[in-house]
């Protein structure tokens, strides 16, 4: 079979075709905003963060101590009523050094790269990581397996948010 029979359409345009007005386009913006209910389990998680503590839920069947806390264990599919405080220290499971904003624009000259990481929290079950960011560390010195600790905002500035932890720094 000839390639012609397999492929049709897909007419390439350049940005210039559009800028010059040769190709007509219509632009529109969604212009929408959202607000989310925190839900039951995360509500308590945030309330505890405001107190400077991290709280998890434990499944009475599989005994997993889960972060973020949840109202039900998605593996055993039963409700979770047992709450456990865990430590604010943990281990870097993986990390990145990110030079790109959410919309794919590049960070500016002199702006620090973002340092997202998955951190396994001490006291939660193995592999129970949360995503957060790292601070007070040279990007090139970050290693997987590094021990880190939460750096909290001053109590008066906490709002009941994951950002009540400013970042995690190496221990």
């Amino acid at each position: 079979m000839s390639e012609k029979l397999k492929v049709s359409g897909g007419t390439a345009l350049s940005e210039e075709d559009i800028r010059s007005g040769k190709i007509f386009v219509t632009e529109d913006s969604l212009n929408c905003a959202y607000a989310w209910d925190t839900g039951v389990a995360i509500n308590r998680y945030l309330a505890e963060l405001k107190q400077g503590r991290i709280i998890a839920t434990e499944c009475r069947k599989c005994k997993r101590v889960m972060l973020p806390p949840r109202l039900f264990c998605e593996l055993c599919f039963i409700p979770c009523n047992t709450w456990r405080h865990v430590k604010d220290t943990g281990t870097i499971n993986t990390f990145s050094i990110c030079h790109v904003h959410w919309d794919a624009s590049r960070i500016k000259e002199g702006e620090d790269p973002h340092l997202p990481a998955v951190i396994e929290i001490d006291g939660a079950s193995e592999g129970m990581g949360i995503m957060h960011i790292l601070g007070e560390v040279e990007p090139e010195k970050i290693k997987i397996g590094m021990k880190v600790q939460a750096v909290w905002k001053p109590e008066t500035e906490r709002t009941g948010s994951i950002n009540d932890i400013k970042y995690f720094k190496p221990l």
Binding site: W36, L46, T94, F95, W102, A104, M131, I144, I162
Partner: peptide
Amino acid sequence: DAITERALHPNLLWIFALEMNR
């Protein structure tokens, strides 16, 4: 997740980068 993750201003590349690094 709108509350526990998006508040950190993540972008899509983070998850790929985190996975690739691991």
